[in-house]
Write a protein that binds this DNA or RNA. Structure first.
Lengths: 146, 146
DNA sequence: TATAATTAAATTGTGCTCAATTTAATTATA
DNA sequence: TATAATTAAATTGAGCACAATTTAATTATA
């Protein structure tokens, strides 16, 4: 077996590529389940934050989800028009936009409960592997946990 | 500690979310290095295939990269206009579009060689962790290797 | 061998994603 | 307290990503 400096440029030697491919493949697997509750994947993770916290501002939301206002602003406007959340300027500091879940948004949680269960069926990983994957990914993200 | 059926809906209990976030964060880290050789990340992985194989058709390329013609067609047209590759219908079967690397494209490999080296500096993972991550991701993708 | 079925790209339309810039509000400083 | 610096969202523009449909070529079948 001989090695070349070009080996580093082979697709099979990249760590980012399977990460990128895997992320998109799994999001595709979510699609049929998310279609049933009329959410895109990005809308779904926004709802996850709101189901836990009820209220959050755009900056915090962006930090949680690693998304910026260029992505979030139009997304949140669309979700507001779907009556999943409200957008209100903070009275204390008008630079901040406060996102709050609506009753409709809360209700959706009951239907969404089936999504992670259905997705779990799709995974080919052993529980230990999933845990290890989880740990490594959060290490890469530079957080100790979620 | 009490558990609820809603725990499954918490962002911190998802495996897809850190995958999705991590993928985008790493691609962002590539950007300054890829800017130097005037490639986007998607163009970079197309070039990786061409640096290894010189020639490939769109269907095969899509299988390697998990991308469809809706993504690849405009991408490849742009790369053709940058003189990185040529697009030619197969004489044997005109449904197939043959992508071939140009001399320019070959030359770019010399500059690109620095990209994986520079990226390696950015990684916070131990070699063993990177290997394990790699193994698990390809298992999820349903391939034995890259 | 006409017709039907299949296949490979291209096209269309929707929805992110992000860098860079702008706008408006707040805070720090001369 | 005016002015400068900082901050949070919004805006703009470029580039994917993908589902669904269309077009054109090839293969299978009646």
């Amino acid at each position: 077996m001989t090695f070349s400096k070009y080996d580093l440029l082979k697709l099979e030697n990249q760590i980012c590529f399977p990460l990128y491919a895997c992320s998109r493949e799994i999001i595709k697997r979510y699609k049929p389940f998310l279609d049933e509750i009329d959410l895109t994947y990005t809308q779904y993770i926004v709802m996850m934050v709101l189901w836990e916290r009820r209220t959050v501002n755009v900056k915090e939301l962006g930090e949680y989800l690693y998304l910026d206002s260029g992505t979030l602003t139009p997304l949140l406007k669309k979700m507001e028009s779907k009556d999943l959340l409200t957008r209100t300027r903070s009275a204390v500091d008008e630079r901040n936009l406060i996102i709050e879940i609506t009753e409709q948004g809360e209700k959706l949680k009951e239907q969404a409960i089936n999504v992670p269960m259905q997705m779990a069926q799709c995974s080919a990983l052993e529980p230990g592997e999933a845990a290890e994957l989880y740990r490594i990914l959060y290490k890469m993200l530079g957080r100790s946990e979620g």
